[in-house]
Design a protein around this nucleic acid. Structure first.
Length: 103
DNA sequence: GAGCTGACGATCA
DNA sequence: CTGATCGCCAGCT
C-alpha cells in the first residue's frame, strides 16, 4: 500500500465522533496538499475493505459530495447520529465540527 | 503496462 | 459573484 493511502486511512481513523474533516485537510496530513481527489478515491476504495468512519469526511464546504444519493443520505444520517446538525440537505456546519488536526 | 477516471481544490475568465 | 478549467495522483479497466 502506498504511504499516502496509509496516512489517509490513519487520519480518518483518528477523526473523533461528532467531528468531520475535509478531503483537502486529510490530503495535507497525507503529505499531498493538493491530492484531495486521491483522498476521495482512497476513501471510496478502502471504506469497503477497512472499517473507517468515511462518513466523517466532507468537502471544504462541509458538504457531502458523494455521487451516490443513497450513500450521501446514509452519510448525513450517520453524522446526525453523532450529534452533528445540518444547515441544509447534505451540508454540515463545518466551522463548528471540523476536526482540528494535531499533527 | 498504459491510459482513463474521479467522495476535491484552487485559479482563471 | 458565477462558471469553467487545470492539477493532483491513487485506483480501476
Amino acid at each position: 500500500m502506498e504511504p499516502f493511502t496509509a496516512r489517509v486511512i490513519e487520519a480518518i481513523k483518528h477523526i473523533p465522533p461528532g467531528t468531520v474533516m475535509t478531503y483537502g485537510q486529510i490530503a495535507r496530513i497525507a503529505g499531498s496538499p493538493r491530492a484531495a481527489r486521491q483522498v476521495a478515491r482512497v476513501l471510496h476504495s478502502m471504506s469497503r475493505n477497512y472499517q473507517l468512519p468515511w462518513h466523517r469526511v466532507v468537502n471544504k464546504d462541509g458538504k457531502i459530495m458523494l455521487s451516490d444519493p443513497d450513500q450521501a443520505n446514509m452519510q448525513q444520517y450517520l453524522l446526525e447520529s453523532e450529534g452533528i446538525l445540518f444547515l441544509q440537505k447534505g451540508i454540515v456546519e463545518l466551522a463548528k465540527y471540523q476536526y482540528q488536526t494535531v499533527t
